Amino acid sequence: MTDGKTESVGPRCAIIGFGNIAELGHLPALLELGVDVVAAVDICEERRKKAGNAGLEAFENLSSLDNLDLDFIDVCTPPSYRYLPIEYAARRGLDVVCEKPVATPGEHSALKKLMHDSSIFFYPIHNWKHAPQYVKAKEIVMENGGAENLTMNTLRTHYGTGNPDWNPNWRVDRSISGGGIIMDHGYHNIYLAMHLFGSDFTKAVLEEITYFKSNPEIEKRASFTLNFPGERRAKITLDWGAGRREIKNTIYECNHKLELSDKRIVNSNHTYEFDESLSGDSVHGAWFKNVFADFLRLRASKDKRHFQEAIRVLEGINSLYEQARS
C-alpha cells in the first residue's frame, strides 16, 4: 500500500512498462476490477511522469519494488525487456500477467525453464480470444462440430507505432521486437487458430516471406500454414504493406462456412454484427476487462496450460524463422 491511499481489499500489482497498452488498456481495466495498482516501472522519464499523473508511484528500476506488498506484476514492456521482470517475479513468488509475445525467440527457452522451476501463475495476454467476434465464432464452431480448415488474413497499411516518448519504431528493431509481422500479428493468429481448432498444431510451414528493403532483418509480409491433427490446416497471411486495414477469416466446418470480418460474422443464413471493428485501433481497450477477469479468476489454480500455450506459439514462430534462414 502506498502513502495516502486507503487499504484495498483487492489484489495489489505493479505495471512494468507504462506505454500505450498499459496506460490506455491495462490500467483502466485493472482499476475497474478493483485491483490496487500501486506502482509502475519504466526506464523512460516521460512515461514515469504519465504514471505519476495517473496516481501511481513511478520507479525507474525493478529493485524499487522490493519493499512493496504485491500479489502480481503486469508486464507491458516491449518483448526484449520482458524476461527480467518475469525472473524478478518468480524470485519473489509473484504471479505474472504478460503482454504477448511473452519472450523473444532467443529467450523463450530460458523462460520455459524458469517457469518449469517456478510455482507462480503465468497468464499471457492472448486478448483476441476475448474479442466479441472470436467469442461468437468459437461458440458457432463448437455448435457445428468443430473447425475443419481455416484461412486467416491480417492486412495493415503499416506496422503499429509506439508512443513518441520512448521509441515509436521499436516494432521494426529486431533487437527489441524479436522479429517483424510474424512476431506481432502472426503470434495472435497462431493462438487464435489453436483456440478455434481446440488443439495444438503439429507443424508450422513457411510459404512466403518478404522483408523491408530498408530493413532486411524485419519481415513485412509472410504466409504460412499450421498443420493440425486430422489433416486440418490453418492458412495464415500477414501484410504490413497492404492498401487497407482488414481482418478476414474463413472457417470451414462440416457442411458450413463461417466468414469473419472486422465487424461481421456470416454463417449459413445468419449474420451477426458487432459494434467495434477488429481493425479499429491497436489497443482494443474494451477487451481487457474480460482478459483480466479471467486472470484473476484463474490465479489460484496455478494452471500451467496458459503459459504452455504461449510457449507453443513461440516454438511455431521460431520454426518459421529457422525455415526463413535456411
Rank of each mutant, 00 (worst) to 15 (best):
T2N: 03
G4H: 13
G4T: 04
P11N: 06
F18W: 08
N20Q: 15
N20D: 14
I21W: 08
G25L: 12
H26Y: 14
L27M: 12
A29P: 14
V35Y: 09
V35T: 09
D36V: 11
V38D: 00
A39H: 11
V41G: 14
V41W: 08
I43L: 13
R47S: 09
K49C: 07
G52F: 09
N53W: 07
A58E: 06
F59M: 01
S64L: 05
L70M: 11
D71E: 06
V75F: 13
P78E: 04
L84P: 00
P85M: 03
C98I: 12
K100D: 11
P105R: 11
H108F: 14
L111M: 06
K113T: 11
M115Y: 14
M115K: 03
S118W: 09
I120E: 04
F121P: 08
I125A: 09
I125D: 06
A131L: 10
A131I: 04
P132F: 15
Q133K: 07
Y134P: 06
I140P: 06
A147S: 05
A147V: 07
T154C: 10
R156T: 01
Y159V: 04
G160C: 09
D173C: 09
R174V: 14
S175P: 02
G186S: 06
N189E: 08
N189D: 10
Y191S: 03
L196G: 10
G198N: 09
G198K: 02
T202R: 03
E207V: 12
N215S: 05
E217V: 06
R221Y: 07
A222E: 10
F224G: 00
F228C: 00
A234Y: 05
T237M: 02
D239E: 00
I251L: 14
Y252C: 04
C254G: 01
H256K: 13
K257L: 11
L260C: 14
D262Y: 01
V266E: 14
E273A: 11
F274N: 08
S282Y: 10
A286N: 10
W287E: 06
K289H: 10
V291L: 09
V291A: 05
F292E: 04
R297L: 12
L298Q: 14
A300Y: 05
A300E: 14
S301D: 00
D303V: 12
F307M: 01
R312C: 11
G316W: 09
S326A: 11
